[in-house]
């Protein structure tokens, strides 16, 4: 087994009762940099992270994290990782500083060292002023930063971040992105899950796309985009063509239609962007030269990749909505 991998998972499977959550997941995460597990709600992201972070046992499969087996060498793994979940793992009634010092003490740092480490982390995450306030008075963004600070007390080699920006406002989100980028430059491995394509695109060196408990694609951002073709051709049908013509066209294109928007009568099709290919596509779609009103050629976004891979045109839940905040009970059910 190679040692330059931070995480290697082979054939992970997990079900809760008769509900299969993960179905043979393979992951290879190189050391250093940012790896994103991208997928919609319910794809199995949280379950995967919990298994990798030793909190949940897989039904089948083998996982090595930081060179140790999560099944048989939990302690060794736990010493080298940290997990920041979707819900702040902090005591609300303790101050920020007390929370960090408590984590330091639980890592068996001497009291002065725990205190110093807490001060240093508060400073680094711009929380020094709030350090003496109880966490219950913190904003969402401050909580997330403190939570991340708490996970860094022990200087982990691998940092798991489960949906680090879900529910944050755009400014806090940008701050979190900066922090993650900063972490990656210190040589640690960051493994994050996200349902936001722009987040994965912006932060990650490597991406695995999960859907329905399976990895449907894996690679660098560039490789993934290439899978779908370098460009996307959007064609808008003429209003006169009617909804039946639109439906017929989508059916005719099948999986080649990476997006479909009936309201705007627009279909997106993967293309290499050459004039010959675009012309051929237009001829194929509109042999009579009366159905297409406009067309447009774009550079492919990760959006297109995702839609093409999961064969799910324009799902509402993969749109980045900064204010979205799924209720705790709803998300908890995913990993009970």
């Amino acid at each position: 087994m190679t040692t330059d991998l931070a995480i290697e998972a082979v054939g992970l499977a997990k079900s809760y009762g008769s509900t299969s959550v993960l179905d043979h997941v393979d992951l290879r995460v190189p050391r250093g940099g940012v790896f994103a597990l991208l997928g919609p709600n319910g794809a199995g992201k949280t379950t995967t992270v919990r298994i990798l972070a030793t909190l949940t046992r897989a039904d089948a499969g083998h996982v090595r994290v930081a060179g140790h087996d999560v099944g048989t060498q939990r302690r060794e793994v736990r010493r080298r990782i940290s997990l920041t979940g979707q819900y702040a793992a902090l005591d609300e009634a303790q101050t920020g500083e007390e929370n960090l010092r408590m984590m330091g003490r639980l890592l068996h740092l001497a009291p002065q060292l725990a205190r110093r480490r807490a001060a240093e982390l508060l400073e680094r995450f711009d929380l020094t002023a709030a350090g003496r306030r109880r966490v219950e008075t913190y904003s969402g963004g401050m909580r997330r930063r403190l939570d991340l600070a708490a996970s860094l007390v022990g200087e982990p080699e691998i940092i798991f971040l489960d949906e680090p920006t879900t529910g944050l406002d755009p400014r806090s989100r940008a701050a979190m992105w900066e922090i993650v980028t900063g972490l990656a430059t210190t040589g640690v491995t960051v493994f994050l899950t996200t349902q936001y394509l722009d987040e994965a695109d912006r932060l990650a060196d490597h991406i695995a796309v999960v859907d329905g408990g399976r990895v449907v694609a894996e690679g660098t951002t560039a490789q993934l985009k290439e899978q779908v073709g370098g460009r996307r051709l959007d064609v808008e049908l003429a209003a006169a063509a009617g909804p039946e013509a639109f439906a017929t066209l989508v059916r005719q294109l099948g999986p080649r239609a990476v997006t479909a928007d009936p309201a705007r009568r627009t279909v997106g099709i993967a293309t290499d962007g050459t004039a010959a290919h675009v012309r051929a596509l237009l001829d194929e779609i509109d042999a009579g030269r009366d159905r297409v009103a406009h067309f447009d050629v774009h550079t492919t976004t990760l959006d297109d990749v995702f839609l093409a891979l999961t064969a799910r045109p324009a799902p509402a839940e993969v749109r980045p909505i900064a204010t979205e905040n799924p209720s705790a009970t709803e998300k908890r059910s995913e990993h009970v």
């Binding site: 972070a53 030793t54 909190l55 939990r74 302690r75 736990r78 010493r79 990782i81 940290s82 997990l83 979940g85 793992a89 984590m103 639980l106 890592l107 708490a150 996970s151 022990g154």
Partner: peptide, 8 residues
């Protein structure tokens, strides 16, 4: 609690 668990 998850954090405590993952810290052994």
């Amino acid at each position: 609690i998850d954090r405590f668990r993952s810290m052994d």
